[in-house]
Design a protein around this nucleic acid. Structure first.
Lengths: 225, 225
DNA sequence: AACACCCCGTTCGATAATCGAACAAGGATA
DNA sequence: TATCCTTGTTCGATTATCGAACGGGGTGTT
C-alpha cells in the first residue's frame, strides 16, 4: 500500500482559502501564514497565484479576502440540479414561510448545496450552503436514504419515510429545529438530492407540509434534464 | 522589477478546477490532464489533494466533477452582503417577475455574486453568478459608479443615474436585454454593490421599475451590519 | 482468442520549483 | 532621532515536484 502522494503546495494553497473562509473578515498575509503554519514568503507566492484566478482579492485596505471567482465555480457544481431546483425552492420557501434548501449526498454525508430564505417572515432559520452532517441524521439525509432501493437492516425512520414519501426529524442536527424533507428522484430512478424545510414552531400540520415538500421535490425532478 | 513569482503547482491545481467548471459534465483524469496540458501523474496527485478538500468528487462512474466544498467556500464570499441581499432579491424577483441579482465591483469589473429567478414566470432571463463585465457597461456597473462620489469627466449615463437614483441600460451586455439597477450604499457611504433586474419586454414602466429596484437596494443596505 | 486501445494508478531518479533565512523599505510609536 | 513592527522581495540550498515508464484491468474489434 502506497502513501498516495499528495501535493503539498496545492494543499497549502487550498488551506489558505479555507482559512479565509473561516475568518471573520479580511486578513493580512502574516495572519494567514500563521494560521496555515507556513512561511510568509510562501503565502505571498500562493496569494499572488490565487489572485490571478480571482479566488482571493485584496481589499482597499490591503487586506485579503475570498474573491468572486468562487461564485462562478460554485455555480458550476451540479449546474443542472441547481437550475432545476432554484425556482421550486423559492416557491416552496414563500408558500410555507420557511427556509427551503437542497441537500445532496456525498459519501456518507448530506451536504446543503443551495438554500432559499422566505421573502418576508419576521423570523426564519438561516441554513447555509456547505452545511454537512451524517446522512443518517436529520430529515434531509433520511429522505435521500428513503429514495434509494430498500436496504437490509435499514433504520425504522428510513422505512417510514419511504412509505409516506417524506421524512421528519426533530433536533437531530440542530436542537430545537424540526425539518421535513422529500427525495428528488430523477428519471433513471436514482436519488440526486432531497428538498427540505426547517422550522421551530410546534403548531405545524406536518402531514400537509410533507405533501407540499413532496410536490416541490417532484417539481425539481421534472425540471431535471 | 521582479517577476513576482507565482506557484506553478497551485496554478495548475486551480486550472483543474476551472477546467471542470467549464466542462459539460464529469471528466476522466486523462481528459483533464490533456486540457491542463500537464502529465497525468501530476493530475493524479492534484486530484487527490483537491478531493481531500472536497473541491472535486469522484462520481459513481469514476469520473470527476466539482465537489460540494465549493458551495461552502462561495457562501463565505462577502457573507454579510449575501445574507442581507437574499430576502430582498427574492422579494424583488417575485414582485416584478424578473430575475434579480446582486452585482459587486472588483477592480474595473462588475461581477454577479448572487441571482434569484422569479417563482413562476413562463419565461425569464437566467443570469448566473460569476458573470463578469466592464463596470462601465450595463446598468449594474453604472449604478455602482453612480453610487460613488462624483468623479471628474465621468460619463453622462453615470451622472443621470446618480440624479435619478437608478440606472438603465439596453443591450450593453447582452443584446436585446434591458436592465435596471440601483446602488447599495452602506452605512459608511461606500458602495458595496448594486441590485439589478433584467428583462426583454419593451412595454415596461421603467420609472416605476426603477423605484422598485431602488427600494430593494435600500432594503439590502438596511440589513447590512 | 488474440489483439489493440484506452484508462487507471503507481514507482522512482533527475530536475526544477519550492522553501525560508535574510534583506530592504516603509509606517507607527515613543 | 531611535526603536519596533509590518510588508514585500531576493537567492542559494533543499526538497517537493515532475514525468517517463511500468503493470493491470476493462472494452471492443478482427
Amino acid at each position: 500500500m502506497t502513501q498516495s502522494p499528495h501535493s503539498q503546495t496545492l494543499d497549502r494553497g487550498l488551506r489558505v482559502l479555507e482559512v479565509l473562509a473561516a475568518a471573520e473578515g479580511p486578513m493580512t498575509i502574516a495572519e494567514i501564514a500563521a494560521e496555515v503554519r507556513a512561511h510568509r514568503s510562501i503565502v505571498y507566492r500562493m496569494i499572488r497565484t490565487l489572485e490571478d484566478h480571482r479566488l482571493v482579492s485584496r481589499g482597499a485596505d490591503g487586506l485579503y479576502g475570498l474573491g468572486l471567482g468562487l461564485a462562478a465555480l460554485a455555480r458550476s457544481v451540479s449546474p443542472a440540479l441547481q437550475s432545476a431546483a432554484m425556482p421550486a425552492l423559492s416557491e416552496l420557501a414563500d408558500d410555507v414561510g420557511m427556509t427551503a434548501f437542497l441537500v445532496v449526498p456525498e459519501g456518507d454525508d448530506a451536504v446543503t448545496l443551495l438554500s432559499v430564505e422566505p421573502r418576508r417572515t419576521a423570523v426564519h432559520v438561516a441554513y447555509r450552503p456547505g452545511v454537512r452532517h451524517s446522512i443518517h441524521r436529520g430529515a434531509p439525509g433520511i429522505a435521500i436514504l428513503a429514495g434509494r432501493p430498500p436496504a437490509a437492516g435499514e433504520a425504522a425512520n428510513v422505512a417510514r419515510a419511504r412509505t409516506q414519501g417524506w421524512a421528519y426529524s426533530q433536533g437531530e442536527v440542530l436542537s430545537g429545529m424540526r425539518s421535513v424533507a422529500a427525495p428528488v428522484v430523477d428519471r433513471r430512478g436514482g436519488v440526486a438530492a432531497s428538498v427540505a424545510v426547517v422550522y421551530v414552531a410546534d403548531d405545524v400540520d406536518t402531514a400537509a407540509l410533507g405533501q407540499r415538500v413532496v410536490a416541490a421535490a417532484k417539481a425539481v425532478a421534472t425540471e431535471m434534464p
